[in-house]
């Protein structure tokens, strides 16, 4: 039993290195660590147009391979991260980058939750106030009734 657990834990540990091995398959050589950083960041944030929901670092599609190579070349030419992103956007649209731009169409992604929370708070406050006045009125009515009883 403990043997099995050892094997399982080794396998799980090995899994942790799988992604590293995967990313290393292209064997790009970078001029400096900053460029390497930028490459890893960009390939993680750019989306594969063929295998949607995978970034280009993860995808094995030919187009992802080509895009990785292009990102590498552009960085070597001294292009900034923004320039690489806009290069890809001009070919594949906003879709290609995981961070959606704020436009008239997408602003609702941020505005709707805020609007929802604001409306919820307003509704809560209004209801609370209604309850208070209701209970006051009720107490008053009760007192009146008791008074009436006393009179008779």
């Amino acid at each position: 039993m403990s043997n099995r657990i050892t094997v399982l834990s080794i396998l799980l540990l090995a899994l942790a290195f799988v992604t590293d091995a995967y990313a290393a398959k292209d064997r790009y050589e970078f001029d400096d660590p900053a460029q390497r950083e930028a490459f890893l960041k960009l390939t993680a944030e750019l989306r594969c147009p063929m295998c949607q929901n995978q970034n280009i670092a993860d995808s094995d599609a030919m187009i992802a391979q080509d895009m990785r190579r292009k990102v590498f070349r552009l960085l070597q030419e001294g292009k900034s991260e923004e320039e690489v992103i806009s290069y890809m956007k001009s070919r594949y649209g906003d879709f290609i980058y995981y961070q959606p731009p704020v436009t008239m169409g997408t602003i609702w992604l941020w505005l709707l939750p805020i609007a929802f929370a604001v409306i919820a708070v307003v509704v809560l406050i209004v209801r609370k106030q209604q309850q208070r006045t209701d209970s006051d009125a009720e107490k008053l009515a009760k007192a009146e009734r008791i008074l009436e009883q006393d009179k008779s």
Binding site: P49, M50, A61, M62, I63, D66, M67, K70, R91, Y92
Partner: peptide, 12 residues
């Protein structure tokens, strides 16, 4: 080098 394919924005 599949450069023109990339410029055209092909996916496959």
């Amino acid at each position: 080098a599949r450069e023109t394919a990339l410029d055209l924005g092909i996916t496959g």
